[in-house]
Design a binder for these strands. Structure first.
Lengths: 341, 341
DNA sequence: GTGAAAGCGCTAACAA
DNA sequence: TTGTTAGCGCTTTCAC
């Protein structure tokens, strides 16, 4: 609290200093075009002199808006797609700033309850809206929030209910993997294997379809070139070994950088070097590990900056109660080519 | 806004329902011991029935407190100590929750101005306090905030002014590196090299002193076993090659995982395998890459959860205007032993 | 123990 | 164009 000594300037202070009413000062701030230029300048002067900034609590109370956006932060999963959240958060905060919004972080009491935490913030009118991120397995938050008419935008498609009407932004994993297939095929690879997640993962299957379709499009084989399992290094390693003993693929397209790390290990086990020796590997997420592991893992990078921009755009529409006909955005990722391909 | 249809319950609503005055409801919430048990129960009942939650804006306005803590989020540095922020943020949000606080994120307009952004939040009374994190190169925020008597706690020592009185929490990098020396020496290594940052880095020199002192303590040589440079893979690689051509160390202690990655590369260049073949490597930060790169990089892990807890503790003291005699906490990191040692 | 009155700083609605 | 009035929902006196 600056000037815990000097009490903070208020509308009244400024009004007195400028010789106008409080309302006029308020207008100078919120609808400056209503004031006569000379009055405006006089008020502006007083505002500057006194270093006045409107009190948020008072404004929030009056306007029933906090200009705060809630985001539930999940515990960073060990070894998992970490690093993404960092990038996304920063972009989101940045985009929110442009829109006059701030991001308020909260954590769930019970991590396993996807709804936990939202209600409290909502009931106390602490936030105006939410950004919902953990939609990878169903999205009960969407239904819950929608039922309450709470403005929110999801990062991630409602896989389970493709026709849900709430606004969402997502990355086209399928297209990203397609890009990778193109890249590998262009480099002469024909037996390109898929190392993915279990069938139960919507995202995993979406990415896999990018591989399958593009392979067919280019007339390349896919039979016995696909493996599915957990998002672990160990699985990637085992899967790669099995594939090598079978169809002997020359390239491995992986659903995640984590899995790709396992594949890289398996290739090293065989005494071959990815990138050289005619073996290629591509991952997904462009994690720190991808950038750092020699000779650099080619990886699909999600456009998180763009995601944040779109989310805020949809959020603004929603907050302004502007109806948007089709509030769904899918962004294309890009391929970061490195040494392994 | 839940019940955009049904208007939200307020103190007055609850009071009417319970047949008491607004004041009594307020007391039921804030000083329940003032009420007669039967009255309390009746009020409680009405609160539950109506699903009442106090409005934050109103409370904030009245009490002049927002229970919000501001944290400036910096752009995630390419390849740098990423992943740390994720972990820290989550821990901080968690600890704040226990204390009835929330974390408000903000970004600077001008990233190069370390003070940018603080003032606006402060002047509008949007936050009660700050957590300052980017203190690795001096800390002008501290002086600025202190001058205004703003409650804040820094993550990171005021290296440039060791006697600054503001509260801070830091990790003992020196001790962490000492741990690593012990570990390597216990495994029979004698020529343990240091691969660190430039002399201008306070943190780098602190960590290096952990190596130097512990080496001397154990009577091990350090001459021509130290290299300094940038926080890049490339530097790590070059440094390791140079060291190998010189004193032929059997172990490399690195100031960061990034540098360690370069060292690992150099070792691979020589056709040797870290962990096996009598070469050991230890990094710092326990990043995702450390966990993921085969055979796993031994690394010093910062106790970020503990840091968050201590920060919030100091913050609470500060917010309650409780004077703390020596508000400085240094936490010891731990060593995560993996395949490279 | 409970209630009535006042007011935190702001803006929406209306009057001048 | 400017000023007046009222009140957002809460807590802090201070009577009763």
């Amino acid at each position: 609290m600056p000037g815990r000594h000097r009490p903070m300037a208020t509308l009244a202070t400024v009004a007195a200093a400028a010789g106008v009413s409080r309302q006029t000062v308020s207008n100078a701030l919120n609808s400056p075009d209503l004031l006569r230029p000379e009055t405006l300048e006089r008020v502006q002067q007083a505002i500057d002199d006194l270093g006045y900034t409107p009190n948020r609590a008072a404004r929030n109370l009056r306007t029933r808006a906090s200009h705060l956006v809630g985001l539930r932060i999940e515990p960073a999963l060990q070894g998992n797609a970490s690093g993404l959240m960092d990038r996304f958060l920063h972009s989101l905060v940045e985009s929110c700033k442009e829109a006059g919004l701030h991001v308020l972080l909260f954590a769930a009491e019970d991590v396993n309850d996807p709804l936990d935490g939202y209600d409290a913030l909502l009931a106390s009118a602490a936030v105006d809206a939410f950004v919902v991120t953990d939609t990878y397995r169903g999205n009960p938050q969407a239904a819950w929030l929608e039922a309450r008419q709470v403005p929110f935008v999801a990062f991630g498609r409602p896989w389970a209910e493709p026709h849900a009407q709430h606004p969402w932004v997502d990355v086209d994993g399928r297209a990203g993997v397609g890009l990778a297939v193109e890249h590998l095929a262009d480099r002469g690879h024909e037996r390109i294997a898929w190392v993915g997640w279990q069938k139960s993962s919507y995202i995993g299957e979406d990415r896999r379809s990018g591989w399958l379709d593009r392979m067919h499009q280019r007339g390349l084989p896919t039979t016995r070139l696909s493996a599915r399992g957990e998002d672990t290094i160990e699985f990637g390693r085992r899967a790669a070994h099995a594939l090598v003993e079978g169809e002997q693929p020359t390239a491995f397209l992986c659903v995640s950088d984590t899995v790709a790390m396992g594949v890289l290990q398996a290739i090293a086990d065989c005494g071959r070097r990815p990138g050289a020796d005619d073996v290629a590997v591509v991952g997904f997420d462009d994690s720190l590990a991808a950038q750092v592991i020699p000779p650099g893992l080619t990886s699909v990078r999600q456009p998180l900056e763009g995601v944040a921009v779109e989310i805020v755009r949809l959020l603004e529409d929603r907050l302004a109660m502007r109806a948007v006909e089709h509030p769904h955005v899918i962004l294309a990722p890009e391929l970061r080519v490195r040494g392994t391909s």
